[in-house]
């Protein structure tokens, strides 16, 4: 079809941009490694220093892949939320999923220290953190789904999600009040978000979570298009609203929950990327938007990660701060330019 052709070109350009960003991302970092050596260390060629190979293989590439999964996944879950809740301001944070993860992490980091008399060894590490925040987000998600099955109004559900967020934030601050400085700092570092420090196994788990969320979304594309008309119209088109709503929330929960578990809370990507994508592709068709949002989110996350690295310096800025610094003005700019957030 005529329409499809114009999108093909955009997709090729986007994929090309993604490739460039990936290359940039793996060749820039605190240690400067020539690009040729970066390539050689991937394809087991000759590298001037063996430590470079180690850095590229076990640090930079997992980090870049994590950035792609995190950016793509969060953006996709944002798109699902915005369509499901018919609200341009919806995002993974709104349902309280990320706050659930925060609570899980806070309980592990700061809560366990309260019982330090019982626990004689330190149980806080990457894996336990991921498990704790997964459980946290999963529990909040379950609660939201139970509420969702009782409440028909999606706006009410949105507000309930926000309230869950407030409750968890309050609990976290209570924990923080009783926590010692060391654990508090640890929690704050987690809340900065990070796409680095993931082992290949963890990247693998994240990949499985991402793919299941993506596959669910692909199956749901037709339904998502029907949801653009509103639930009653979707129903008149033969859509099983209850079942599909459950599946959409499940996909969002998988993506947002899983990602927050491994990478910490990362703000604004889920909210801003779907809007940016709609601007560029000028369509509401989810058959186009789902893949476009994933690629776009991945590109943005890789770029944010490059900025966070502060190339050639030894400092790494919190990625959560970078995404907010870029994301918030984008949303404001969209609002000012378009007068309204269309979706």
């Amino acid at each position: 079809m005529r329409v499809q052709k114009t999108y093909q070109l955009s997709f090729i350009l986007l994929l090309f941009a993604l490739f460039i960003c990936f290359c940039l991302n793996i060749s820039l970092g605190s240690v400067s490694i020539p690009f040729g050596d970066v390539i050689n260390s991937i394809f087991s060629g000759d590298v001037k220093q063996e430590s470079w190979r180690y850095i590229v293989q076990n640090y930079r590439i997992p980090k870049a892949i994590t950035a792609i999964l995190v950016g793509g996944g969060l953006s996709l879950s944002g798109l699902l939320m915005q369509t499901l809740f018919r609200n341009p301001l919806a995002g993974p944070f709104v349902l309280g999923i990320s706050s659930g993860a925060s609570l899980g992490a806070a309980l592990l980091i700061m809560g366990t220290s309260l019982f330090s008399g019982i626990l004689t060894f330190d149980i806080v590490n990457n894996i336990t953190l991921a498990i704790a925040s997964s459980i946290g987000s999963f529990l909040v998600l379950l609660t939201v789904m139970v509420v969702a099955s009782r409440i028909k109004d999606t706006m009410a559900l949105l507000i309930i999600g926000l309230m869950f967020g407030s409750i968890t934030a309050a609990l976290v601050s209570v924990l923080a009040y009783f926590s010692n400085a060391e654990n508090l700092q640890r929690y704050i570092y987690w809340s900065f978000g990070s796409v680095g420090n993931l082992s290949w196994v963890q990247v693998g788990i994240l990949f499985i979570v991402f793919i299941s969320g993506l596959l669910l979304s692909i199956i749901l594309m037709k339904t998502l298009n029907a949801f653009l008309l509103g639930e009653n119209y979707a129903k008149s088109l033969g859509v099983n609203i209850k079942q599909k709503r459950f599946l959409i929330i499940l996909a969002t929960g998988l993506l947002a929950g899983g990602i927050t578990a491994f990478a910490g809370p990362i703000a604004f990507v889920g909210l801003a990327v779907p809007h940016l994508t709609r601007q560029i592709f000028n369509t509401t068709d989810h058959n186009i938007l789902v893949p476009a949002v994933v690629i776009y989110g991945a590109i943005l996350m890789l770029l944010c990660d490059i900025l966070a690295q502060l190339p050639t310096s030894a400092y790494v800025l919190p990625i959560n701060a970078i995404t907010s610094i870029i994301g918030a003005p984008v949303v404001i700019w969209l609002l000012v330019r378009k007068r309204k957030m269309i979706f």
Binding site: T83, L229, S236
Partner: peptide, 14 residues
């Protein structure tokens, strides 16, 4: 059966 309802559609961006 197809319907035309009084409620506005969710996305006017279509």
């Amino acid at each position: 059966i197809s319907v035309v309802l009084t409620e506005p559609i969710a996305s006017k961006n279509l």
